[in-house]
Computed example of a mutant assay.
Amino acid sequence: MSPSQPVPPRPAADAPAPPPPGPSPVLAEVVRSGFVEGVHRGSVVVLEADGSVAWSLGEPDRPVFPRSANKPMQAAAILRAGLDLAGERLALAAASHSGEPFHLELAERMLTEFGLSVDALQCPPDLPLDPVEAEQYLASGQVRRPLTMNCSGKHAAMLAACARNGWPLDSYLDPAHPLQLLVRETVEAAAGEPVAALGTDGCGAPLMALTLPGLARA
């Protein structure tokens, strides 16, 4: 800055912080009887085949917790750990199940094949996700169990992968566990970006934040 130019004043120590970004754009409206009773705001991104951004709206680079959208990537890590998953087993490991009897039977079978019981599951006890299944389950006198929680298939696959590799079973949800380190490596490789934040999902498993472009690439 030359001597002839005025020196801009420094902000006061107690100057207010810059305002936060404005609200995200409205993506959907909730309409009842022709009346808009609510709106949903958020961000959208569309990618080219090469993974570059073709179009976006809102703040697509703002990291989010993808919740169950992370499950296919977690299942990919379980495959990388050497667990033989295909067909209905892979589907159960990569998605939320509705708690139908054949879901529960398969999750339990995936455990018993490695000498494990349902007591090894560390997902929280819950009712079947499907309302009809939940009603029938309660009518039969059953109570909430980890096995009936909608993520028990993923947890059963995680435990089976740990048993196959000789990894600790009681700490399989610890972010520093060999399986969870492999999950993080797989998530970052699939997304093409580092995990922005680490949290805990409702099922107790580590939850890894990504941007929308990263999630879409994965």
Rank of each mutant, 00 (worst) to 15 (best):
L173H: 15
N165I: 03
P63T: 02
H40Q: 13
P60S: 04
L90T: 07
P20W: 03
E59Y: 01
A94D: 09
K154Q: 13
A17C: 03
H103R: 14
A218L: 01
E88R: 14
A160H: 03
N165V: 00
S52A: 04
P125Y: 06
L129H: 15
C151D: 12
S140A: 13
L212R: 08
S171M: 11
G87T: 07
A191Q: 09
L210Q: 04
S96D: 04
R89S: 00
S68D: 10
G192V: 01
L138A: 05
S24P: 03
D201S: 00
S98C: 05
F102H: 15
D174M: 08
P16E: 07
V132W: 13
P175M: 04
P19E: 13
P21F: 00
S140Y: 00
S96Q: 09
D174Q: 14
S33W: 06
P66D: 08
V195K: 15
G204R: 10
R164S: 12
T186Q: 08
M149Y: 12
S140D: 07
A216N: 09
L181N: 06
A94V: 05
D126W: 01
E59K: 01
L121A: 05
A77K: 07
L104Q: 15
A157V: 04
L27M: 12
P125S: 09
A139Y: 03
Q74G: 10
A17F: 01
L147T: 11
M110H: 13
A209H: 02
P213V: 01
N150K: 14
V118A: 13
L138I: 01
H155L: 03
A81M: 08
A161W: 07
L106H: 13
G214V: 02
E29C: 03
A28S: 10
P175Y: 05
A15Q: 07
P11V: 02
P63G: 07
C203L: 10
N70L: 14
P101S: 09
L212Q: 12
P66Q: 08
R145P: 01
G58Q: 06
L106K: 15
S98H: 05
V118L: 08
P178F: 02
A218K: 03
R80E: 12
P178W: 03
P131F: 02
A28G: 08
V36H: 15
P3R: 14
T186K: 11
P125D: 08
T200W: 11
T112D: 07
A15V: 00
L57T: 08
L27V: 05
A120Y: 07
E59L: 02
L210N: 04
C151L: 10
M1I: 05
A176G: 12
S117R: 07
A49N: 13
M73V: 06
L215K: 08
A176L: 11
M208D: 12
R145L: 00
N150V: 04
F65P: 15
E37D: 11
G166W: 06
D61S: 02
L129A: 15
G202T: 11
P6E: 07
D50K: 12
V31D: 14
L57A: 13
E133D: 05
E48I: 00
K71T: 11
G38P: 04
M73I: 03
H103Q: 10
D174V: 04
M149I: 09
C151R: 14
V7F: 05
V45S: 13
W55P: 01
G42I: 06
L121F: 02
R62P: 00
G166C: 11
P11F: 04
A76H: 07
A86Y: 01
E48N: 14
A189P: 09
E37V: 00
A28T: 01
